[in-house]
Structure formats: C-alpha cells, structure tokens
Nucleic acid binder design. Structure first.
Length: 521
RNA sequence: GCCCCCAUCGUCUAGCGGCCCAGGACGCGGCCCUUUCAAGGCCGAGAUCAGGGGUUCGAAUCCCCUUGGGGGCACCA
C-alpha cells in the first residue's frame, strides 16, 4: 500500500477545507431533464442553495442533458419552475428562456458544451489515461450475462485496454463505432474525506474501466460532471448518497487531469414508506404535484430542511432566513429519512394559519376557480370568485385548512345556491321532527325581524330562543347549522351566518323548513 | 455475487463519555376549552438507544464483530 499516495486526496482534506473556507463557495444543482423533479431531488437542490446562501457563495444550476434517449421535453421548465416556486434562486444557469444561460461559465446545458468534453477526453487518451474501446453493446451485454451466471462481479473485461496501434487503426478503417474508456489504475486506493461521512476508501482494482465518452459523441455523467465542476470552479459537490460509489471514479479523473478535486458531501437519501429510495411508484412525489395539492412553498421548504438536518433539539418551524442563518454541514444526518407526509400536512396547516387572511385568500383563488373535476368549487359557482366575499369567508376556514386544495370543500356551501343534504340531519340528538321544525320556524321569524345582520345582533336574537324553546344550545344551533350550511361540521354558527348574509340565511332557513315539512309522514 | 454507506420511540430527530433508567415534533389515546368541526392547552402510552463483545471509574455516545436496512456495480444520470 501507499504506492499511490496521489490517489489519497482525503488525507489533505482537513487542511484543504480550511484553506477553501476563505475561497468563494460555489455549489451546483445538476439535474438531468428526465421528468418533473421529485421531492428527494429538490431536497438536494435545497441543501446546496442553503449552503451557498449561508456562505455568501454562488448557487449554480446546470442541466445534465447528455442522454438524448431519456430527455423529456418540458422537463427543464418543470425543474426551473420547481426551484422558482420554492424560492431557490440561482446565480448562474438557465435563464428560463429556451436553451439560454446566464453566468460567466455559460452555457449551463451540457449538450452545448460538447467540445469541452471532447477536448478533455482527448487529453486523457493522449496522456494514456483513457483509450478507445470498440466492443459492441451486444458483446458487453453478453459479458454481463455471463458474469451474472458465474456469480462474478459485473464490469468491463478490458479487452480493448491494450490494443496495439495496428489493431486500433484496423478498427478505425473498418469504421467500427467506439467509446472512450478511462484506464483505471490497477493498484492503490482512492479516498475521499466526505464532509458528512468522514473518510471513505476504495480499492482501485475493484473499479472497471468505465466509459467517459459514448459512441454518439456525448460524454457520460462521470466525465461531464468532473469537467464542468472543474471549469465552473465548483468548491463543494453536495449530492445524494447514491453517488457515493462513483466518487472514486471522479477522484481518479481529477487525478488524471491533474486538477484539484472539490470537496464532497454526500447527503442522506429520502426514502418512501417502505424504506426504499423515493420514486414515482411511491405516489405523487413531484414537487409540482405538491403545489397542485395546495401545499405552501414555505411549508415544503421547512419540511424538506428537516429531512436530514436539524437546528437544535426542538426548533422545527423556522423561517427561511433562520435556516439560512444556521445551516451547516455538521448538522446533516447520515441515515436516510422516510418522507412523512402526515407531518408535512401538519406543517402546512401551521403555515396556513400564519398567513395574513388577505394573503390566504389570494392563494386560494386559483385553486377554487379550477373546474370541480380538478378540485375546484362546484361548476355552478360563477367564476371569477367574488373576492370581497371570499375575503370574509377566509378567516372562518383558515384554522381548518391543512392544504389549500381543501378550500373548495370547506367553503362550497358559502357559494352554492341550493344546499343538498339529508333533512334528517336537521333533527338533532334528543330532538324530534316537530320540535326541530318549530325551532327553525321560530329562528326564521327572529332572523326576519332583525334590523341589522351582524354577529352581535344574530346572537342576541337567537341565543335566547334556546331557553324559550326549552332545548339545549347544541340542539338548536346544530339544527341551524345544518339548515344554513348543509353540514354538521362547519365554522362557528353566528360568524358563518354573518358572512352568509341576510338573504342567503333566510332563504336557507326557509328551505330547511320546507324540507322538514315535506318529510312529514 | 462484489463494493460502499447507515442503524435512538411507528415516523422525523436531539444527544458528539458522566447533565439521559434518553429530550422535542408528527401521528395515536385521554382530559380541558366549546353550539359542531377545527385550532389551542394539559396529561399519557410509545425507544431494555438493533444484538454481542471490548475500552473506561463511567457508554446511546469510542473500537470490533454480528444482524438488519439502504445504495451502487450501463455507451442512465
């Protein structure tokens, strides 16, 4: 051992970290446009963003679109939209306009940086650190199959590693497609001093000669990310733990190029309820889907921060500023975390309650105005929604909302003309039809006689009826509640009536009376 | 099969050798408040700190092994 000290970058990391702490922090979020980013993915972006903001550094977004087969149109937009919605602003990266970028290392789309990778690959080939491989995908496929059969570790068998110049010329003149593979040193080891995990070491001879340039001329992730991270001056690579196994390859690449590697921090993964890596099959995991369901970006932000990081032993609800102020790599957890959607729902409720009613009303509008089939108010309700009316409704439902999407259900009775409900609901426990009918008729008369229709007058007029009718408050109020809202659970009665207004209340009370009369045997 | 990472209540976590027969939060149960539903308040159940060895006067905290879980092993990222 000890032959390849150069491969042991880790031993110097302590010193390097200190030196770099005075260097500018530059971190990146490097998603691949293969679909809408899910919450686990965006959590990585979040931690990078927090680290950049905490240290006054730069947060860079780079699109890793080096796989034409998996490219999904619209994915870049979805990624940027997700970041934007969560308030994760980037200093360099796509502008959001077509395939444009801004920043001193533009472009930030890898598909637009091909010459850079070609040059890098050529440099490695010239230096003997890489070689062209002419093996066909079919042969590699068979190789893997055989290796699996013999229970041997899969990996390239290095057939083309030591081709003679003549053999190579032969393949080239035949026009055999080729890739470029990295010549992994067969001795020594590579080590990284991971900022969250400490030192991790790998034996070089366990790594195979991985592809760095594909036959279509596009680089693989390994090459592209190393080349870009270097050229873009990335100081810290913070990525999910699934990347840890490929770190030795990256280290070896830096070494071959003669570049100083950035510091690495492998973040814990976000797991589904079954403890497996979170993925689509765990349900709606897309960030944008959470927006559709009425989660507040500040709530999701806060929740995601808590998945793998903590401020102390008790602080959970934190403003974005507080998190930025306190964020540190030292307090990142090592173990993966299950995405607990129930806690997210609770936290969302906390944030909803903190909103100024005016603000909540504004956020509710677009959701309420969606078609009923998409979770909006019943289609019979006119759009746009009456803003002034909504503003008065909001305080009554604010503390009952856990997600904005519940708004339609919680407020629909304020808007619909005719309430649909089972008349039997009007009859409260311990009451009968006659008593209820008499009560509602008495209430109707009292409300009709009201000079002013406000909370105080309503209560002053109705509460005394409890005694007059000889029933319990809950019995009378319950009946009125069903009459005016069509349901047994609703916001406080008098406030609800006040907001509903005189006309709506009278009409609904009359309808209730009519319904009861109609059910008379 | 091989390599790597991880391991405190169901879940998210605090704990970085004595303050811990383990604290907070979600969820759950009960009570209070109350015209319903919420919100809020209080109380409670819930972790022999995965198991076993060490080290130490002393271990959830350090070391080793085992077990369990996860990730990776593509001309995908």
């Amino acid at each position: 051992m000890g032959i390849t000290r150069p491969g042991c970058w880790g031993y110097n990391n302590q010193r390097r970290y200190q030196r770099m702490s005075s260097q500018p922090v530059r971190v990146r979020y490097a998603p691949s446009p293969t679909g809408e980013p899910h919450v686990g993915n965006i959590r990585t972006a979040l931690f990078n963003w927090l680290f950049a903001r905490r240290h006054g550094g730069a947060f860079i977004v780079r699109i890793e679109d080096t796989d034409r087969d998996r490219y999904i149109p619209g994915a870049v937009e979805a990624i940027l939209e997700s970041l934007h919605w969560l308030g994760l602003d980037w200093d360099e990266g796509p502008t959001g306009q077509a395939q444009e970028s801004h920043g001193r290392h533009a472009p930030y789309f890898q598909s637009q940086r091909l010459p850079l990778y070609h040059e890098a690959a050529q440099q490695l080939v010239s230096g003997g650190h890489a070689y062209r491989c002419y093996c066909s995908p079919q042969r590699l496929e068979e190789l893997r199959k055989q290796q699996a059969q013999e229970k041997r570790p899969p990996g390239y068998d290095r057939r083309c590693r030591d081709l003679t110049d003549a053999q190579r010329r032969e393949m080239e003149t035949q026009g055999t497609p080729s890739v470029v593979r990295f010549r992994v040193p067969q001795e020594g080891h590579s080590a990284v001093n991971d900022l969250v995990r400490g030192e991790v070491t790998w034996q070089n001879n366990l790594l195979d000669d991985f592809v760095i340039l594909k036959s279509d001329g596009f680089p693989t992730y390994h090459l592209a990310s190393v080349v870009d991270d270097h050229h873009m001056g990335i100081s810290h690579v913070m990525r999910a733990e699934e990347w840890l196994p490929s770190t030795p390859r990256h280290l070896l690449l830096y070494q071959a190029f003669g570049w100083e590697p950035p510091l690495f921090a492998h973040l814990p993964m976000i797991l589904g309820p079954d403890r497996a890596k979170l993925s689509k099959r765990h349900g709606a995991t897309s960030v944008l889907a959470y927006r559709e369901q009425g989660f507040l970006p500040e709530a999701l932000f806060n929740f995601l921060v808590l998945l793998g990081w903590s401020l102390d032993d008790r602080t959970e609800v934190m403003s974005r500023e507080t998190v930025v102020q306190h964020f540190s790599l030292e307090r990142i957890t090592k173990a993966g975390a299950i995405f607990n959607s129930e806690k997210l729902l609770w936290l969302n409720g906390v944030y909803i309650r903190q909103l100024a009613p005016e603000d909540l009303a504004n956020r509710l509008v677009p959701l309420l105005e969606r078609p009923a089939s998409q979770g909006g108010l019943p289609d019979e309700v006119a759009r746009p929604v009456d803003r002034d009316y909504l503003r008065r409704i909001v305080p009554l439902v604010q503390e009952r909302l856990k997600a904005l999407a519940e708004g339609a259900e919680l407020t629909s009775f304020f808007f619909v003309e005719r309430l649909e409900y089972d008349p039997a609901l009007l009859v409260q426990k311990g009451m009968d039809r006659e008593g209820t009918l008499r009560g509602l008729q008495r209430v109707l008369a009292a409300v009709e006689a009201l000079a002013s229709f406000d909370l105080t007058s309503l209560e002053a007029a109705i509460r005394p009826l409890v005694e007059e009718l000889g029933v319990k408050a809950g019995q009378l109020f319950g009946a009125i509640r069903v009459a005016t809202t069509g349901r047994t659970a609703a916001p406080p009665l008098f406030q609800t009536m006040e907001v509903l207004g005189r006309e709506r209340c009278l009409r609904k009370l009359r309808e209730a009376v009519a319904k009861l009369e109609a059910t008379k045997a």
